[in-house]
Design a protein around this nucleic acid. Structure first.
Lengths: 193, 193
DNA sequence: GTCTATACATCGATAGAC
DNA sequence: GTCTATCGATGTATAGAC
């Protein structure tokens, strides 16, 4: 088996990434230091360079991992014939995912690290998430890209307000379903006219 | 005049804060270093501690200054008898202000600096901004706090999407007026029923 | 692959002379 | 009030032993 050594390496990479998420949850994504991360996984700092060429490469791995987690959860949703119910379920899952872990939400959907932008190789999963959202909205009768943009912005706005101003509560996200209906109704009304 | 020395000090503080905004605009709010800031105002780095006890104190001064700028601009708006027009004008001014300067928008409305939260002494102006928004919405017939939250979140969502995904464009903010009407109509419909 | 050791850059912060 | 000098932390990177 030639793959065994590569597998072990991948497992170690996964361990390191998981430990990095742990540190990020405690002190914030910007406070993950390579020395602390190495300590967490029982290594010395230079040894991490065996697995990541730079700190940005670590961020890329975390970004890709986070998007993979999200995509996995979204794809596990049971299919729903009712396009509205399907869209709401999708968006609620997205919101729950974002609210579960501030640091992960920040890395995936904001630019919390000065000088770091996710590399292109980490984007495919992120684009699949958005693509699925667009599909679901189309099924619900939203054909104007402007309406898609609005719904995306509204959901993002609710999530951001929730995490910033009422972490752990539901003061904003409790309006999620109602606002989706409001915007779908409005989009349908304007497209059938 | 006893106040003269204090005035001079305040003027110097203002100069430093202005220079800090300049650096933030160029490299991002997170990349403002005390050494670069000192260089900018013709000082050495330790001398800045004569004016700010810590870097967080500098951030607090910038936060207060940004909110003061915003409040000034909002209070300069001409009064408008039509509550909807007044609210839209308020929100458009807010959006323009946010889109003008990414770094300022980030410091005022997000938490872009790991470990930094604005101190309580910097909040009054920020609360006056929100208070004015609530007043305008009340005048437009929005009496449910949940509806106020939704409109705040929607405007914030449009602004964030705009800065993140189409800086300099209007792909999201062009929907601002329409979405405000949509949400006001919905709030009014539900409150008069 | 992992280690020790080291180099050099940056950063915020402090001590103490003037 | 401003300076020089310095501290300890960081990230990045390398050399070389095992």
């Amino acid at each position: 088996m030639i793959g065994k050594v590569a597998d072990r390496r991948q497992a170690k990479v996964a361990t390191i990434v998981a430990a990095a998420w742990g540190l990020a949850r405690v002190n914030g994504i910007g406070a993950v230091s390579l020395r602390a991360l190495a300590r967490e996984v029982g290594m010395r700092q230079p040894s991490l360079y065996e697995y990541f060429d730079s700190k940005h490469a670590l961020y890329d791995a975390m970004f890709a991992d986070g998007n993979r987690q999200l995509l996995e959860r979204l794809e596990a949703l049971p299919p729903d014939q009712d396009p509205r119910r399907a869209l709401k379920s999708f968006m609620r899952t997205l919101a729950d995912f974002a609210l579960e872990d501030d640091a992960r939400h920040a890395l995936l959907f904001q630019r919390p690290i000065p000088g770091y932008e996710p590399g292109p190789e980490a984007y495919p999963d992120a684009e699949r998430v958005l693509g699925r959202a667009v599909e679901l909205m189309a099924a619900a009768g939203v054909d104007d890209p402007g309406d898609v943009d609005c719904i995306v912005a509204v959901v993002g706005g609710l999530i951001d307000a929730q995490t910033s101003n009422d972490p752990g509560g539901d003061r904003w996200v409790r309006h999620l379903d109602r606002l989706i209906d409001l915007h779908l109704d409005d989009a349908n009304r304007r497209s059938t006219r």
